[in-house]
Write a protein that binds this DNA or RNA. Structure first.
Length: 301
DNA sequence: GCAGAATGACAAG
DNA sequence: TTGTCCTTCTGCG
């Protein structure tokens, strides 16, 4: 379920499975037949994420551009184990059939990746890729990201900070969960206009995203609660549940049950007591999505 | 079986 | 602000 961390994790998974190979590209569902043909049999060079956009470069300057939207998924699977390729195993590994509406499938003798439910799946030229990237704000997951660009937009805007954080042209990669959780972590009133935000508050939020998003990439799961963040940073959790090996099969699949218990400060906790002050967590729609916040902890100061 | 929801983003009015 | 699209899964009858 896609905020920026999902796409960056996915880029890593795709690279681990396909970089340097020439996957067969198809559209079992039939809605991406032409695009698939345009990419089929070319060398998969490199996948990269910018915010919630994924770009996979194939030889000949041909790109696959994917946006998962709200409900899309792109599952990378190793259907034949390594043993099948070092001569120690002569078992035939049948190609798993496409289940459901698979818009796009990448296939090698070893791996496959199935794309479903994406809001955007198209082919693109380098110029088209550049144009998309140019529209995006800085992505905290990219080392070259310039937070100053986000601050310029935020500090001059009358729009609520909860609205600005969801605007991918302001800051790329944050979605509805990180928005609610980060605002809570910094006790920021979601309705405070961007231009009334203190610089040091913005800096703290940015730094927090730089801390939290990579954890999301590593675990394939959004983690925001202080105790869990601490555990992850300390490496104090069951590593068996947290696949990190770039060659491990499970590394390319969603965590089976989540490495950590799925819990948040305010996200989806409307009506329940705030974990800090006991006040009822509230919800309302901002920027087209349900915002969750604590009216007491996140009161305007 | 079927409504409703889901970590998103658009266009139309 | 509302409607629309993308698909799967859950919960309720």
């Amino acid at each position: 379920m896609p905020e920026g961390h999902t796409l960056h994790r996915l880029a890593g998974s795709l690279n681990g499975a396909f970089a340097g190979t020439r996957p067969a590209v198809s559209s079992p569902q039939g809605r991406f037949v032409e695009g698939a043909a345009w990419l089929d049999g070319r060398t998969f060079l490199d996948a990269e994420a910018w915010g919630k956009h994924l770009f996979a470069e194939f030889s000949g300057e041909r790109y696959l551009h994917v946006h998962l939207g709200l409900i899309g998924s792109f599952d990378v699977t190793a259907y034949a184990p390594d043993a099948a390729f070092d001569g120690s195993d002569d078992t035939a590994y049948p190609i798993p059939p496409a289940v459901g509406a698979v818009r796009l499938r990448l296939l090698t003798p070893r791996h496959l990746a199935d794309l479903r439910g994406a809001t955007l799946c198209r082919t693109a030229t380098p110029e088209e890729v550049d144009a998309v990237v140019a529209r995006l704000g800085p992505d905290p997951l990219r080392p070259d990201a310039d937070p100053e660009r986000a601050w310029r937009r935020i500090s001059t805007s009358a729009r609520p900070i909860a609205d600005l954080l969801m605007d991918q042209a302001v800051l790329a990669g944050v979605g509805n969960v990180y928005r609610a959780e980060v605002l809570f972590r910094h006790r920021v009133d979601p309705f405070r206009p961007g231009r009334e935000l203190r610089r040091r508050t913005f800096d703290a939020i940015w730094a927090d995203l730089v801390l939290l998003l990579p954890i999301g990439v590593q675990l394939g799961q959004i983690v925001t609660m202080a105790d869990q963040v601490e555990d992850v940073l300390a490496g104090d959790y069951d590593p068996a549940l947290v696949p990190t090996s770039p060659t491990g099969v499970s590394a390319w699949r969603p965590n089976p049950h989540g490495a950590l218990e799925r819990r948040y400060y305010v996200y989806k906790r409307d009506g329940m007591p705030c974990l800090t002050c006991g006040s009822r967590v509230r919800t309302t729609v901002v920027a087209g999505r349900n915002l969750f916040w604590c009216g007491r902890c996140q009161r305007r100061r």
